[in-house]
Computed example of a mutant assay.
Amino acid sequence: MSWRGRDVVSMRDFSRKDLEVLFEKAREMERYARSGLDVLRGKIMAVAFFEPSTRTRLSFETAMKRLGGNVIGFSSAEGTSVEKGETFSDTIRMLDAYADVIVVRHKLEGAAKLAAEIAQSPVINAGDGSFNHPTQAMLDLYTIWREKGKVDGLRIGVMGDLKYARTVNSLLEGLALFDVEVALISPEFLRPRQETLDYIQSRGLRYEFYSRLDEVLGELDVLYVVRIQKERFLDPLEYERVRGSYRLTAESLRGAKDGLIVLHPLPRVDELDPSVDGTRHAAYFRQAAYGVPLRMALLSLILT
């Protein structure tokens, strides 16, 4: 299936071949991530961010400008007609009249799917609710592919809040397209949603649960870290106990493979200690930088 004109709502809508085409294009776009090129001159991207973002929004905007296109939109509902009571649907209809592609971020699950049903222009989900963040997953997989030279055959650990982190749900759906083994490291009550587990199991993804990183660290090629979300705990003392168990430091990486890479969608709070930054394992800032060529590739494939 061609990328041209496609919506990007969920990782479930894409095949392994789709991702391979995207990765090759992103590798090509790395050459232009600073210098730019004019393949999207005259095109307009609308960003409709009803929820805060730094890396996702700015990397999309940078990508569009590096491709020679223009950007309109907003980074919060403040100062827009939403404050006057305009509905989400009407906002999308207006942006559809102004732009060639719409990038949506929203706190409510299903917002991007609704936008895609309304708009004639392609819609890209930049994160909605606690379930979908497909372009982050594409970036995560691309980073693994670039840093390790492959995705197949790797042992990948995913640690932290695996239930409510939308990056984790999308990443697991993407990993289900490859021949990998996944270690799910979290408190029992923060394991991935059953819906996600059912899906990845149906796709043949091999996974195991672990309660501690040290149980599996020495076997991992990739460790993907997300924060434990304090707001999910009724007992602050329980949060403090659990948080400390899933905090990565340079010391806690002793015993890791030399080639282990640590990824994180960012921003970090205290789950990823700055001491990790100086280790050979830290790849999360390179991961963030890959966001520009990856999204350049995505936009160029959809709009040309």
Rank of each mutant, 00 (worst) to 15 (best):
Y142C: 03
R66L: 13
D258E: 14
E86R: 09
V82K: 15
L141M: 05
T56N: 08
G204Y: 12
M1V: 12
R12Y: 00
T56Q: 04
D100H: 15
E195C: 01
N169H: 15
E61Y: 07
R155L: 02
I228Y: 06
E188Y: 08
T54L: 15
L220I: 12
E117V: 14
E271T: 08
F23H: 07
R41D: 09
L263W: 00
L37G: 04
K17G: 09
R34F: 13
K257N: 11
F49H: 10
R268I: 08
G157N: 06
D221S: 03
L177F: 02
D128W: 09
V276Y: 08
M94G: 01
L294V: 15
L298E: 09
F131L: 12
A282V: 13
A176D: 02
E28W: 12
S186L: 06
T143N: 07
E20T: 00
L205V: 15
R31Y: 03
Q229T: 01
R12K: 12
A111Q: 00
T87N: 06
R295Y: 13
S89D: 08
E251H: 11
Q194I: 08
A97R: 13
D161M: 07
Q201H: 03
E20S: 00
Y32W: 13
K107E: 03
S81R: 13
V39G: 06
S81Q: 15
E28M: 06
I261Y: 02
G255V: 14
S76N: 12
E219H: 07
L184K: 04
D270S: 15
Q136I: 01
R27W: 01
F189R: 07
P192E: 04
E30F: 03
A48Y: 09
R4E: 13
S275I: 06
S15G: 07
L234P: 02
A33M: 14
L175E: 06
R41H: 14
V39Q: 06
Y284L: 03
Y199T: 05
F178W: 07
L40V: 10
E215T: 06
E61H: 12
A126I: 09
K107W: 02
I102A: 05
A99C: 08
Q120V: 08
P274G: 05
V276F: 10
V225K: 04
S252L: 09
D100G: 08
